[in-house]
């Protein structure tokens, strides 16, 4: 009963907002030159679904995202583990990390163009750089948040150093890494789209800007919606994976118990 009501309210919200947007445009409350009716935008979107060029742009964006996130993971997790497992290494790197982390990744765009040109490499370089930090920091947190009792237990049972790492330390850091991956995935997508928009690498970002410049307003909105859907889908995927990994974690249990 209450659940149906909740769903009804949720969908009522969507319907009302869409209807208002349509109405505002049709009545020229919002000038339709800038805000075409939402129905037109959706028609354009559906039309795009049959085009190869559209899917190619989606593919290029996802390619940049996947490679960026992949490289970031390959670098960030080992670096995080390496720094996190030794107090000496941690202290040695701390100041350096504190300085490098807040550098806005987009500041490197000119350097990327200079070295890698305007193609895929630049996009992947930027996405990797940006996605590296959240994942590395999360891994580091994970390494430092290990229950000392668990480590002591492992010691008492005579596990060797390498065994302690694979059996105790790494598994307990997994939830942190999962969270890091989710954040980094968002960041990699942002940087992929940025590169397409600013540098002009192939992908949705470039297409959106081209649509604007060419006066194809509906197309611009349609493609913007597509990037939103991609972002939403990827986030949903990683959130689900994160929940799965976190199932044993106490925080997750209370969240599930507390949700209505």
């Amino acid at each position: 009963m209450t659940r149906t009501l909740g769903w009804a309210q949720t969908w009522a919200g969507v319907v009302v907002v869409l209807a208002l947007a349509e109405l505002a445009s049709r009545t020229e409350v919002l000038p339709s030159r800038y805000f075409p009716p939402i129905s037109q935008t959706f028609l354009t979107l559906v039309g795009q679904l049959g085009r190869g060029s559209f899917w190619a742009a989606v593919g290029h964006t996802l390619e940049g995202w996947a490679l960026g996130l992949g490289f970031a993971a390959l670098l960030a997790i080992p670096v995080g583990v390496a720094i996190g497992t030794s107090r000496l290494r941690y202290r040695a790197c701390r100041v350096l990390i504190e300085f490098l982390r807040p550098i806005p990744s987009v500041a490197l765009i000119p350097l990327a163009i200079l070295i890698y040109g305007v193609g895929l490499e630049s996009k992947v370089f930027l996405a990797t750089f940006a996605a590296f930090w959240p994942l590395m920091i999360q891994t580091l947190y994970g390494m430092q948040d290990i229950d000392p009792v668990a480590v002591d237990t492992a010691r008492v049972f005579g596990l060797r150093r390498s065994e302690r790492l694979t059996k105790v330390v790494l598994p307990s850091a997994v939830p942190y890494v999962a969270t890091g991956l989710r954040i980094s995935s968002t960041v990699a997508l942002i940087l992929a789209v940025t590169a397409e928009l600013v540098i002009g690498s192939a992908g949705l970002g470039r297409e959106i800007n081209a649509a604007r410049a060419g006066g194809a307003t509906e197309l611009m909105y349609a493609l913007t919606i597509v990037t939103g859907l991609i972002g939403w889908g990827l986030n949903g995927l990683f959130t689900r994976a994160e929940r799965r990994v976190l199932r044993w974690h106490p925080s997750q249990r209370t969240v599930e118990g507390g949700a209505l």
Binding site: T186, L189, I190, A192, V193, T194, L197, V198, L204, G205, I208, N209, A211, R212, M220, Y221, L223, T224, I225, T227, G228, L229, G231, W232, N235
Partner: peptide
């Protein structure tokens, strides 16, 4: 709306 990568809103 928050899932849209922010730079994608720039053309808009």
């Amino acid at each position: 709306v928050r899932a849209i990568p922010p730079p994608a809103l720039l053309p808009f």
